[in-house]
Design a protein around this nucleic acid. Structure first.
Lengths: 194, 194
DNA sequence: CGCCATTTTCAGGAGTGTCTGAAAATTCGG
DNA sequence: CCGAATTTTCAGACACTCCTGAAAATGGCG
């Protein structure tokens, strides 16, 4: 592995981290390398820099493409494929979130929906289904929020995130403005549309 | 595996999903089983219901305990350990988020901080460090937001999530109410198009 | 203290996933 | 369409993780 020390450590760390997710080490390393690279790299360069086999690089890149985490580039007069990560880090976050949702959340939701429908055969099963329903509802709330938020422009998104705990204050203000006098219970659903 | 069909499918699905994370199949199954169980279960019951070895169950439970995902219970006059998941699904989300952060984010942040400090030896390395800094900053924004939000009571949290993108509107209202003309960076952004 | 119930540890076999080199497939310029 | 450059596929070697049964440790209770 022939890399500047900083880059090397970064790459190795991502290799490690990768394997804590479902991603394998090589894929993590390739991604990290591309992320810090000033120029797009081709498969041979990756092979050489990471000290892995050509075929391993090829498979890793295929995997990254299936995750939409790398972009394929071409240089004029060069037949090689060059790869790079999106320059905008926020774009990366969006891609990652979307892909993980697609692979981890969506299938689970579909299983849950299906199982909740079935008529329970025993009280025990009925209880199990109730718990699944709770889980379903919770995930739906989270993904609903995500679906809304992901549509925000990056600027607004950053603004929202920076707000952090001040969100409390904002919500309180909103309550004071919109709460129907006399109703002690807070309305959890949408606020009155302006 | 002797389980009602609904429960069985749920358990199997979580086993699958588990292995897409870093978690192994058995751990996922045990967790799923406890989640839908009306009563806490002991290791022998788990062994029997999932058709796995006693020792495997023990290891899985140890793993889940290290994730703070199961609670240890005791029955009067029974020396066995009984296990259950937190009854409140939101508590589970909180635990999961916290643990994943501790295991996946925090170490990365510490590596990033360290690497960013080092003086670059080449322009290439300097560029790499700049990218690491971008990543660091982004993660800091996200974790900062998380740190704030996790302190909200569940009710408030749900309220916030339900709000979804309507948060936009609330922010606009806040702007209108509190902006000191000329002093805010934010009001450069497009005013509400409503 | 000794016994029994229970949990934990651990070595090794089984099973999966990863990585490689060689060979096949693809692509494109000439 | 030929041939060189490049990418992809794939069988098998290797490594790693998971799972089990057996044995050891733990922890109360008489």
């Amino acid at each position: 592995m022939h890399l500047p020390p900083t880059v090397q450590e970064f790459v190795l760390h991502f290799g490690e981290m990768g394997s804590r997710w479902g991603i394998n080490r090589t894929v993590g390393q390739i991604y990290a390398l591309l992320f810090v690279s000033p120029e797009p790299l081709n498969a041979d360069e990756i092979t050489e820099k990471l000290g892995i086999s050509r075929s391993n690089a090829s498979m890793g890149l295929k995997e990254l493409q299936s995750w939409n985490l790398v972009q394929l580039r071409h240089r004029p007069g060069d037949r090689k494929d060059y790869f790079s990560t999106p320059g905008d880090v926020w774009a990366i976050v969006r891609v990652l979130a979307e892909e993980r949702k697609k692979r981890e959340i969506d299938p689970t939701m579909s299983v849950l929906r299906e199982l909740i429908m079935k008529p329970p055969a025993t009280p025990e099963e009925a209880h199990a289904q109730k718990r699944m329903e709770e889980m379903h509802e919770l995930i739906e709330l989270l993904t609903g929020w995500y679906a809304d938020v992901k549509r925000l422009e990056t600027d607004r998104l950053i603004q929202l995130l920076s707000l952090g705990s001040k969100i409390q204050k904002v919500l309180e203000i909103k309550d004071r403005l919109f709460v129907v006098p006399g109703s002690s219970r807070r309305d959890r659903r949408a606020p009155p549309t302006t």
